[in-house]
Design a protein around this nucleic acid. Structure first.
Lengths: 250, 250
DNA sequence: CGAACACTTGACAGCCCTCAACGTGAGTGG
DNA sequence: CCACTCACGTTGAGGGCTGTCAAGTGTTCG
């Protein structure tokens, strides 16, 4: 069995929504391409390349490790978790991908995806055949530049949390990073819901779930935030920023 | 003061060595581009783009954090260490770059280099203006593809050591990775010299230097390797591979 | 020859993981 | 509507790995 939505995208692809000239405004590609000064014709070329995938429900996979690599995708709605399972059965979370962010970039070097990607809630995607978008990038320098930047950014992002930081520093950096990325997409920066389980956060920050619980509790008793189940409110941003500063290279 | 070789490359650039058609055979670009089937004209275009930089002596910087980003570079000889210093003065090593590998890719997304790059021994570089190589990549699909792959590979590499592994697993993976990369460049896989200090290894693996010493000693008493100062010989590859397997996703 | 540096070795402490038990809320079926 | 189940999350106790501190050894270089 292979219950991934991606390789069989045609079965899951939605019909075009009819608004051919209105690109998803938060998309990592069109947004930045407009900034780059891409003309309308180039944007149109990009648009005809898109396949809208979804909605995927929580727990459904976008792709799995070993699936043949054919496409990258921008998250349009929801949260995607990328992860691997090591031979001891432990899960390592590589990242959480919010609307506007791109998944699959680490698969370009190779024949198949090196990790799994799963929807944490209801997810909508814009799928781009990589061979096709690469060809388009040779004709549209702004698109090529944008792809280079996205790839380069992911290198830095992967290196960020690789350092050896204390548990509270890592959690503070995680929460602050989430807040900033949500804010950049127009969501509230101080009040948001965690779409992932404590275990996911722990496997991302290489902590035990118990440690995540304890640190969150400590933050709450310090008055820095309020957390109820997966609802979260940042009360003292400065305190959290002070903790996270060395991690985020602030 | 800014004693980096890179921004002022003209002062340090060597004259062309006269062998215009013989590209450095281990270069990450020409090697792979030939595999891609780049024609001679395209290779020539790439060749005229190259500036040979060096030799740099141990301790000299290729670029420093904050220097304006203009170029990436392939290591032709020697070892380059990339690192950052956090606000507490602790050094975090991002990577060691051997001949044939490329530095500066994490700077593409941004105006300036996000890290320092220093020569650990005598280093020779091939410098490529990034704007120019990007333009060339629009005309030479094989070059664009190669750039995408290099970037994508670095994402995976950064994620590799980000997991939470025991000290001996991380050190085993480090030694094995080094061995494989050296072997791919034609060096002996079982007998080589560490070009970096114990402290550098420690800062790369986020361990204390003392821990690196102790683990190396344990490996030696187990009969897995022999280490004398910076000379290293792997005696029981299987044992080391067994330790490193979960890290390297073997 | 002396000083600086890299590396090693030992003792100790602390952070965080492991193990275990409990609490809580959501979904399910009777 | 309620009891049940189960996954998720929390809380507590104890231990191990590795960092910190300190001192000692060896090497390289001036």
């Amino acid at each position: 069995m292979n219950d991934t939505a991606f390789p069989r995208s045609s079965a899951r692809t939605l019909a075009d929504d009819g608004d051919r000239l209105h690109f998803c405004s938060t998309c990592a590609f069109s947004q930045a391409c407009l900034d780059e000064g891409m003309d309308k014709a180039a944007l149109m070329d990009l648009h005809v390349l898109v396949e809208h995938v979804g909605p995927l429900r929580a727990g459904e996979h976008v792709f799995r490790e070993g699936d043949p690599f054919e496409a990258i995708a921008a998250v349009r709605a929801g949260t995607v978790k990328t992860y691997v399972i090591d031979r001891d059965g432990r899960e390592h979370v590589l990242g959480f991908h919010l609307p506007g962010e791109v998944i699959g970039l680490n698969a370009i070097d190779g024949e198949s995806y090196p990790c799994n990607a799963v929807a944490l809630d209801t997810v909508m995607l814009c799928r781009f055949s990589f061979p096709k978008i690469a060809v388009l990038a040779t004709r549209v320098p702004g698109l090529q530049r944008q792809l280079f930047r996205l790839l380069s950014r992911d290198i830095g992002r992967a290196a960020l949390l690789a350092g050896d930081w204390a548990a509270d520093q890592r959690l503070a950096a995680f929460l602050l990073g989430l807040s900033r990325r949500l804010a950049a997409r127009g969501f509230s920066p101080n009040r948001f819901a965690l779409t992932m389980a404590r275990t996911d956060v722990a496997n991302y920050l290489r902590l035990a779930p118990e440690t995540v619980s304890r640190v969150l509790k400590r933050f709450q008793t310090e008055g820095w935030l309020r957390v109820d189940r997966r609802e979260l409110e940042l009360l003292d941003r400065d305190a959290i920023e002070a903790l996270a500063a060395p991690v985020l290279r602030g």
